[in-house]
Nucleic acid binder design. Structure first.
Length: 216
DNA sequence: AACTCGGGGCA
DNA sequence: TGCCCAGAGTT
């Protein structure tokens, strides 16, 4: 079985186990999606949704966010952690959007990554949605699972993405992203993976140690 | 490569 | 209570 077949089988299994993964990630505009993606760092979606529901009733555009002070926005986004960093990133990114992109969110990943607070994973999510899911953002979960399944040995997330995406049709990549994350949170945990409940054991090269459970 | 930011979820 | 995050920037 070559790697393409292996990935295909894995994604088919994940599709049956996590059919609805990622369907809640819907925002009205690319800009609101970008703000939500920045807020998502190290924070569960549930909290992000609670904060953004409140936040977007007051402000919706890059122009409005660009006019806020960091202190004011920090107060608005309390509840999903890292609020000082995130408020700074969101305001500076908004100002950059107004200044360089006419208040629109760029669709190019390298342009997105040049924005404050927008790194590899966030840029991948934003451009993935805008591009109709051609990206396969690699976060810590996707990264860890790719290693355990023997799908990539790279340490750079973008390199991992290249190796995976090459074997996945463009329109299936974002779904794969969300399903791998769902699997990483529920079963393929970083510390104590629930290998007994895993549907992918036949493809997995990872053997948890007796008393120590490292990442790779 | 290691460190910082941070509140909420969960055992 | 302590431990752990659906990251990104800095040193």
């Amino acid at each position: 079985m070559n790697k393409k077949e292996k990935i295909g089988k894995i994604l088919n299994i994940l599709a049956t186990v996590y059919p609805d993964a990622g369907t809640a990630l819907i925002y009205k505009t690319p800009f609101e999606l970008m703000v939500a993606a920045i807020l998502s760092a190290q924070c569960a979606d549930k909290q992000v949704n609670r904060v953004t529901a409140r936040l977007f009733k007051k402000y919706n555009t890059p122009q409005e966010f660009a006019a806020l002070s960091q202190e004011d926005l920090a107060e608005e986004i309390k509840g999903c952690g890292l609020y000082r960093n995130k408020s700074k990133y969101i305001i500076e990114a908004s100002r950059e959007l107004v200044k360089r992109y006419g208040g629109t969110v760029p669709r190019n990943r390298s342009e997105l990554e040049s924005l404050p607070g927008v790194g590899s994973k966030t840029a991948g999510v934003v451009s993935g949605v805008i591009y109709g899911s051609s990206a396969l953002p690699v976060d810590t979960h996707v990264h860890r699972i790719a290693h355990r399944l023997g799908l990539s040995r790279a340490s750079n997330p973008r390199k991992v993405e290249e190796e995976l995406a090459g074997h996945i049709p463009p329109h299936q990549r974002m779904a794969a992203h969300h399903r791998l994350i769902a699997h990483g949170r529920k079963v393929c945990l970083a510390r104590r993976p629930a290998c007994g409940n895993c549907h992918l054991v036949e493809f997995c090269e990872y053997q948890p140690k007796e008393d120590r459970h490292s990442c790779t």
